[in-house]
Design a protein around this nucleic acid. Sequence first.
DNA 1: AGACCGGTTTGGTCCTACCACATGGGTCCA
DNA 2: TGGACCCATGTGGTAGGACCAAACCGGTCT
Lengths: 238, 238
Amino acid sequence: MSAKTRSHEVAAVLRTEILRNQYRPGERLPSERDLASRFETNRGAVREALKQLEQLGIIAIQPGGVRVLPKEEASLEILNYLMELEGPNLKLADEYLQIFKMLCVMCAEHTIAMANKEQLAFIESTIAKMKTDPGNKEFMREGWTALFGCFLTSSDNLVVRLIVNGLKGQLAVAMTVVDPKHTIDTKRISKILNGMNRAVKNRDSKRMGEFIGQYFEWVREITAKSFSNSQSPAAVGS
Amino acid sequence: MSAKTRSHEVAAVLRTEILRNQYRPGERLPSERDLASRFETNRGAVREALKQLEQLGIIAIQPGGVRVLPKEEASLEILNYLMELEGPNLKLADEYLQIFKMLCVMCAEHTIAMANKEQLAFIESTIAKMKTDPGNKEFMREGWTALFGCFLTSSDNLVVRLIVNGLKGQLAVAMTVVDPKHTIDTKRISKILNGMNRAVKNRDSKRMGEFIGQYFEWVREITAKSFSNSQSPAAVGS
DNA sequence: AGACCGGTTTGGTCCTACCACATGGGTCCA
DNA sequence: TGGACCCATGTGGTAGGACCAAACCGGTCT
């Protein structure tokens, strides 16, 4: 788990402690010298680690002391660490899904409107592939990942691209945090896939967006069901 | 524009050079020792600066040399610096506006559906204020900033919050990069504001979202017009 | 031509020292 | 008693030195 270098290690430990609310926002971190002795390393490594955390937006380094910032002011990247730490968390997962829904719909509409023949062909073939076995979760996940990647590339939107970078692989995570016992409503999925297929054929970007939106709404539903059925979760955040 | 500390200065200079494509992706940066002598500082400061840039996602530090990464793999924060550097840029500004539109619509719908009386009252009063002088750009900007902040708080969505953090004050920038000579279609704005007002009164979140979407579409339109009319619009600001 | 080897360069770590300033606690004054 | 003031202490910021392991590069040897 640890990191490549000493400073990354220190940064990881401190980041974890902060995200686990072991320090209250505004509270002072131990001094660089104390941290150095605690981690049995030198002050330089600690300073490098703190610089990273500062760039992450979870601490503020000032003469007089390092202070912890509220999570709400941090950088997008902390979400990945939060997800790792807190485990399944319905609220956060649903927030992810809402964002991904929007981004995906937006990119898909743009793609359908602007794509060249090859891209359209790829999209059609991917949808066709998914239609062969809409009950297989892993299979569907791969298909959606491919589709989303295609939309992302074709829409050529740097802002969206960077947001997705910040959210990294969490799309896959969010979309698979579902009760494995949950049986998939293949009829509904097939309907959506058929709709998407028609939308691509007619180059109807608006309808494409609607069907993709429907799919994400379905994912949100089953995610919520999974959480309410199995009481398994979850460490509360913030 | 320098920074609080030496390492921030160094980081800022290097960041600017990298974002200006003075290094090709994959290319090696000068060694830490060379950078230290170039900036007339010590190696520690350079290392701290490099750690920041690494966290920003624009460089990769490896034994053997520091390598520059392609912008597409960076963190969301670089957009702020890109905007500052490149000045007005229609494509980027429009991408911003699309994202802000989505986020704002989403938060607004959630807010209208869930808000308490005080929040609704604040929203109503803000809209009422804006209606008094829809032709005043600065005035409208303030109003929208207040509204957006309210939506952001009420919707209580950490993911959205962090995305907006990453995009920081660029909403205001993006919404004011318009030809100052452009006369505002007050009729259209008033119509939208009236629609929003009714939506709030009826707690019709969907309609609220639609009107806010309309507003952002209008902003996109006039932004595009500003860029096409005057080939060298708006003072860069920063 | 290919494999091998050694010197050079690179980042990673560690140490000591000094500076400017923010903080906090005590003193002093009103 | 309450407030303003001041100074010792601790903090981060900067500096420069040294050493290590590994990557890199050039030349040599097979």
